[in-house]
């Protein structure tokens, strides 16, 4: 009997947590498509004529050059740059490091590991100071470089752990075929590492897409803001046009979730493989 009871409670917990996870997304989409008057009159009702204008209102909301469309472009520029920088620099380095003698290898690892623990709070003010000095404020690509570099340590460690277990026979076969080291890396190693690169890249993407701590400092002008910062103009004001606010939340929150559903295999694998680090 206790066994049945335990099963019951664990199932209840699992279902309860699933509901708690999904309901906010449900309500964001429900309210996003609902006329504002209906949200106040009957928030839980699911029968209503959809107000698609909420979405166009949200998309065009904001002043002048600072609309959701602009935020999206800025976020794409920022995240794209971050991915190019972090993967472009860290992946080759992580691969070639496996050939270093143990002592040098350990030194590299310790240095990179130290890079994962520097708290962002220590970085934002010097970042602002330096970016300001070099006229790089309010440039999404320049901010993306900072995000990319901050993602290098994690990318490096996760990729390195993958390359250490890479079958040496394949590398040796390439060498016997007379390929140079660089060609072995490009023609043999990279194509076989796509899965891992995608996994690690998604972790960077999620973080750079959502973070506002660095962007709020480096991208202060309205027309340079990414979604994570621009969305803040929706915060705190829940008295006027709730439908538009929630349509805006849907536009911001749903694309990453859909991308994640498509690529979830890689994400869960990436976390299970490299486990803990951000």
């Amino acid at each position: 009997m206790p066994r049945v009871l335990g099963k019951f409670f664990s199932n209840l917990g699992v279902l309860g947590w699933t509901a708690l996870v999904l309901l906010p997304f449900f309500f964001i989409m429900l309210f996003g498509t609902k006329p504002t008057s209906q949200i106040y009159a009957n928030p839980l009702g699911v029968i209503y004529s959809p107000a698609w204008s909420n979405f166009s209102n949200a998309w065009n909301a904001g002043a002048g050059d600072s609309t959701m469309g602009v935020w999206f472009i800025n976020t794409f520029l920022l995240v794209g740059t971050a991915l190019v920088v972090s993967l472009g620099v860290a992946v080759p380095a992580a691969y070639f490091t496996i050939f270093l003698p143990p002592k040098a290898n350990r030194r590299v690892m310790v240095t990179v590991l130290a890079g994962t623990v520097v708290p962002a709070i220590l970085l934002v003010i010097p970042f602002f100071k330096a970016y300001n000095q070099f006229g790089m404020l309010n440039k999404p690509i320049a901010a993306g470089v900072a995000y990319g570099v901050l993602a290098i340590p994690t990318t490096f460690l996760l990729m390195n752990r993958f390359f250490v277990d890479f079958p040496r026979e394949i590398l040796e076969a390439g060498l016997l075929d007379g390929l140079s080291n660089l060609r072995i890396f490009r023609r043999l190693v990279l194509p076989l590492s796509v899965g891992q690169i995608v996994s690690v890249g998604i972790l960077t993407l999620i973080w750079a897409w959502g973070d506002s701590q660095i962007a709020i400092v480096l991208l202060q002008s309205q027309e340079s803001q990414p979604i994570s910062v621009g969305m803040l103009s929706f915060a705190g004001d829940f008295t006027t046009d709730l439908g538009t606010t929630f349509a805006g939340l849907s536009i911001a929150a749903i694309p990453p979730v859909i991308l994640y559903i498509i690529l979830s295999k890689y994400v869960t694998k990436g976390i299970a493989l490299g486990g803990i680090s951000k």
């Binding site: 996870v21 906010p24 939340l249």
Partner: peptide, 20 residues
């Protein structure tokens, strides 16, 4: 897959949802 949704969605968006 599902339980990771809150970690995927932009923190700004979910925070605004909850504060509302």
């Amino acid at each position: 897959v599902i339980w990771f949704f809150p970690g995927i969605a932009p923190p700004t968006a979910v925070a605004i949802f909850w504060s509302s």
